[in-house]
């Protein structure tokens, strides 16, 4: 039963498939820079955000700047959390000063800002997402229509 010949095929199969899988994994494309969909994880349950449908013309056709709002003439769209987080030490998030708009303490540079102007990420998202849905009377406003209870 277990002659050399019987085992040749399985050994070859295992070897070839292993090589194929290594190639597939190694060649895997990076996820696109502009997200397709995004899954926010938080204590209240995950939130699936269809970035592609919100932005595409065939979808809700919303301009980038309506959400990626700051600074107004920004070319790249930063993640909200880059600015909307409040570092423990009371300093400004690093992006604010690295954009050469504000100094390290928020006062040097062109524009003065206060740390207290800044809302944290979850509040920023809630305000923006729900604000727009309310304004347009379209899109979810209830907690349970964004935050899912069962995720698998």
């Amino acid at each position: 039963m277990n002659s050399k010949k019987d085992l040749l095929l399985p050994y070859c199969l295992a070897g070839i498939l292993l090589v194929v899988s290594v190639l597939c994994y190694a060649g895997a494309a990076e996820p696109p820079e502009e997200p397709v969909r995004q899954m926010f994880e938080c204590v209240a349950g995950k939130v699936l955000f269809t970035h592609n449908i919100h932005t595409s013309e065939s979808g809700y056709d919303i301009a980038c700047a309506d959400c990626h709002h700051h600074p107004e003439d920004a070319e790249d769209s930063l993640a909200c959390g880059k600015c909307h987080n409040l570092p423990e030490d009371g300093n400004f998030p690093q992006v604010c000063s690295s954009q050469a708009c504000h100094g390290p303490d928020g006062d040097a540079g062109e524009i003065e800002i206060e740390v207290s102007d800044m809302v944290k990420k979850a509040d920023a998202l809630h305000d923006q997402c729900i604000g727009c849905h309310k304004e347009n009377e379209a899109g979810p406003e209830e907690c349970a229509s964004c935050h899912v209870k069962y995720s698998f």
Binding site: P10, L13, A14, G15, L17, L18, V20, S21, L23, C24, Y25, G27, A28
Partner: peptide, 20 residues
């Protein structure tokens, strides 16, 4: 695409190697 191929191929070959 390729990621799916990678998962299936790795699943078959690793199962055989664990058995071995």
């Amino acid at each position: 695409g390729a990621p799916a191929m990678g998962v299936v191929a790795l699943a078959i070959s690793s199962a055989m190697l664990w058995e071995l």
